[in-house]
Amino acid sequence: MLDDVRLYFKYISVSVRSQMQYRASFVMQSVGQLLITGIDFLGIWALFDRFGGLEGWTLTEVALLYGMVSVAFTFADAMSAGFDLFSATVRNGDFDRMLVRPRSTVLQVIGQELTMRRVGRLAQGTAVLVWAAWAIEAPWSAPKALLLAAAIAGGTSIFVGLFILQGTMCFWTTESLEIMNTLTYGGRESISYPLSIFRPWFRRFFIFVVPLAAVNYFPALAILEHEDPLGTPVVVQWSSPLVGFAFLLVALQVWKIGVRHYRSTGS
């Protein structure tokens, strides 16, 4: 286990060093990402400016939801480039080489790349999160800070899990499916708004199928001490981030099934 961690950091340091060879491109892409995600939040701000509020939610409260999901997504996105581009690995037969190495396949795929240019988006998400944390009315406490960290870790787990599932599908389809983007990007987009505003079928989807609500909306309620129109008990709000880690475990199991099913393309 410890050995795997050490190997992961070795992989990552190789990846980081290779990306730093193109420093100008790295800086430009990071700044670009910072601006483009800033535009994203501008849309939310404009809506609040026009309408004044959203069913009892203020801009700062929604900014907390946005910041939490944005930071979690960015961590996952930066780590999971190997899974995102897994269709290429399958197509040109590189996965065969991974199978013959005496290490877990997940470790090797996830060690392929840590996408450094995401640092721009991370900065934007963190800025929104810090601003929201400073501006909300509910008082902060140590347990709440812990809950926030757990929610972000849980959210990262779910998004990594989704990227793993996306990669797993390549064992069957070879091609990567656009439909998974609906879940990752669509999930990030919709979960930045309070879950209670959506229709019931949509809410249930993000509670029970892809449980993003458990790592964002529910813990945020506890942090904000916000009344929940859906009536969830406080216990659920405090413990729900655990669901995120469970989701990752399930995704890893599905990956194992996929690996067993793998047949080389022969190229």
Binding site: T182, S190, F198
Partner: peptide, 19 residues
């Protein structure tokens, strides 16, 4: 994908308009 995005956007706008 586009249908899904459309749904998300419309649900968000509907919520803003409700109040």
């Amino acid at each position: 994908t586009q249908l899904f995005w459309g749904f998300i956007r419309i649900m968000i706008f509907t919520a803003f308009y409700r109040f």
